[in-house]
């Protein structure tokens, strides 16, 4: 027999449709009102005309585009290298901090000290200390390269952040999982490698990617050491033309560069939520 909704259900669906139409209308009106207020406030500001010509100039934007983009390629190279090392070091530090092997105790101590130190130090300070301090040592086999030392500073700082995220993941894995693995005869390192870490990483993937997004934009900070990245290139253009538009160009590039990873992070987080709801664990 074919199903026909009852009149009660039809009424209910009708009411739902009306409610959702009303929500859409309210959202549209509110968006327009907000937009109008924002436009009026900004364009009505006394210095708006000056800002428009010095920050939003199409002429200077197209002029700066190639050099800023060239600088951005340096940022890309730096952040790809940094991301790889950050993930490796972060993982090693997290494992060192959670290990209970007595022989690795000194390693655990060093790892704890390391994360405490580099989570607390401002990145800018690390960049300056590494970028200016290490060349000051005059060790000949260390190249005095702003790009290299800047990348090292990024890796030092972000490894500490990522290690803490992964450690939280390791400690979040249900102890019963470890026990089940040990009961099957797996050694502690086999348990870590095949049972604990895969689950730990999966659980902290959204915050992990979040840190990588941060790293992407902070790769622009190596410009303080003189590396000609997107920000530095924009600075040079600005100094040449007395117009700030190149900075806006660089900013746009950075936003565009981080958007794919932020979307991926959001998508993963949503998917995890949905999965947990489905399993009734929330």
């Amino acid at each position: 027999m074919s199903y026909k909704p009852s009149s009660l259900q039809l009424q209910r669906e009708d009411a739902r449709r009306r409610a959702s139409r009303r929500s859409t209308l309210i959202a549209a009106v509110s968006t327009v009102a907000f937009g109008l207020v924002a436009v009026i406030v900004v364009t009505g500001a006394p210095g708006f005309d000056r800002v428009r010509t010095s920050f939003f100039s199409a002429k200077y934007a197209s002029h700066a585009l190639p050099t800023v983009f060239h600088g951005l390629l340096l940022n890309l190279r730096v952040l790809i290298i940094a991301e790889i090392f950050v993930l490796i070091f972060g993982l090693l530090i997290a494992v060192a901090r959670t290990t209970k092997q007595p022989i690795l105790f000194p390693l655990r101590l060093v790892a704890t000290f390391y994360t405490d130190l580099f989570r607390g130090l401002p990145l800018l300070l690390v960049l300056l200390l590494v970028g200016l301090g290490i060349p000051g040592l005059r060790i000949t086999w260390i190249p005095n390269s702003a790009v290299l030392l800047g990348t090292v500073a990024l890796i030092l700082t972000y490894s500490a952040y990522v290690a803490e995220v992964i450690r939280a993941g390791i400690e979040g894995v249900n102890p019963a999982q470890r026990q089940a693995a040990r009961a099957l005869g797996l050694s502690s390192s086999q348990t870590l490698r095949h049972v604990v870490l895969p689950q730990a990483i999966r659980n902290v993937l959204p915050p992990l990617l979040n840190d990588l997004v941060s790293l992407q934009k902070d790769s622009g900070l190596i410009s303080v050491l003189g590396a000609v990245d997107a920000i530095r290139a924009a600075g040079i253009e600005t100094a040449r033309s007395f117009n700030f538009t190149p900075y806006l160009v660089a900013g746009t590039f950075f936003v565009l560069m981080t958007i794919p990873l932020t979307r991926l992070t959001d998508w993963l987080a949503r998917r995890q939520d949905a999965k947990q709801k489905q399993q009734g664990r929330w």
Binding site: Q177, A180, A181, G185, L186, H194, Q199
Partner: peptide
């Protein structure tokens, strides 16, 4: 432990592994 099989109240299957991988891991 590799000579003793243990089964728990809460199953404790490894959620990131397929049924076949759960069984073949040990």
């Amino acid at each position: 432990r590799s000579n003793i099989g243990s089964v728990f109240q809460a199953f404790n299957l490894f959620p990131h592994l397929s049924v076949l991988e759960n069984i073949t891991l040990a």
